[in-house]
Design a binder for these strands. Structure first.
Lengths: 194, 194
DNA sequence: AATTTTTTAGAATATTCTGGTCGATTATTC
DNA sequence: GAATAATCGACCAGAATATTCTAAAAAATT
């Protein structure tokens, strides 16, 4: 008897590569099966449908994004550096988490319930992280933000706005330049002027 | 009345991008049309079929390869430098001419007559270029090749052999390292030992 | 060794997708 | 205004693919 969870993880990992390359619709179950060296119907033993596999992939990538964000925030002490790392991780996520972003932006996938749920959950977590950064910055007298809650939401919304051109233009934009531009804009607005 | 040739070129260029990204089979006429902001059946006014468009794209890329090869050879005088440039252009072609190489390696496209024709034509042209380089090298006493004809064919065959891992591994290989390795191998065999 | 359970996969089925055509419409030219 | 060129959404036949079926193999249990 094989380890069911292990097999599921293998399927998710392989499917993620192929979905990432071709997108949900152009990826076939036959392709995933071939890459796994399994029969196509064997996959249905572990997953109910193609959509369920895609949901698992997107969920996996949302978790990856949260983990990476958390790790990057914890790696530095200064609220300014925390904010820099937040922006950097956010901007670079496009390359590594293409399924997550495809799920969000691809109109053809709008009928998938799970996408909105996953994003909502992720957004709440990100908001909590942002609030902590702002609160910490205020406490250390580095930021001057009256309402961390509102500001966190504003920053998150702005970051989402920056995602859009990144998605459509696909790597034609130098991400590092973008990161710096976003940070300049952000800090002039919230960095304490002394 | 619009310029028919201009429209055809626009279609080829746009189709090339999409074919390059998804391959012949996964690309749909609907996608090409949408990217061109045309109706799908409008494309059939300019091309007989999807296959005919793909043939035009592959032919275009073969021409591009030949042009680039010719330009690179002419840019230098030394036979050694010419051979270096030949290898370099050949190796780097993968990134820019994905349709041409897909057409060659993708078994699913074997039934397309035109692919073999285009490749045969290109190969003859490349052979002529190689023969000239070898002849020139012999004349300038830099190479010592008894039969330029056979050596040219051997080099071309070897280069084709090197293409295969490049194709399957897709950018996991550092091309520049490969170029240098190929050149070392080639020159130790034909560079005059003094 | 026999039986049961788990896992497997090719074939079949149901459903969706797509290449290509049709006929109507619009734009352009004469 | 007529003829020609260019346009495109609707449509269809056939291809492609998601999913199910069912039998067989493998693994686990008795």
């Amino acid at each position: 008897m094989v380890n069911k969870e292990e097999i599921r993880k293998r399927i998710i990992s392989t499917a993620r590569d192929i979905f990432g390359r071709y997108g949900f619709r152009k990826t076939t179950m036959e392709e995933i099966a071939r890459e796994l060296k399994m029969g196509k119907s064997s996959i249905y033993y572990y997953f109910k449908s193609k959509e369920e596999i895609f949901e698992a992939v997107v969920r996996y990538e949302a978790n990856l994004l949260r983990s990476e964000l958390t790790r990057a925030i914890k790696a530095v002490d200064s609220p300014v550096d925390k904010m820099k790392n937040y922006v950097r991780v956010r901007m670079k996520a496009f390359e590594k988490l293409s399924n997550y972003y495809n799920a969000i932006f691809d109109k053809n996938l709008d009928h998938f319930d799970f996408i909105e749920k996953i994003r909502a959950k992720y957004d709440l977590e990100e908001l909590a992280i942002l609030r902590l950064i702002l609160y910490d910055g205020n406490r250390k007298n580095v930021f001057r933000v009256k309402n961390s809650e509102y500001m966190a939401m504003a920053i998150q919304t702005a970051m989402k706005g920056f995602e859009v051109p990144l998605f459509w233009k696909k790597k034609e934009i130098d991400v590092e330049d973008r990161v710096n531009a976003v940070l300049d804009m952000l800090f002039y607005g919230i960095l304490r002027k002394e």
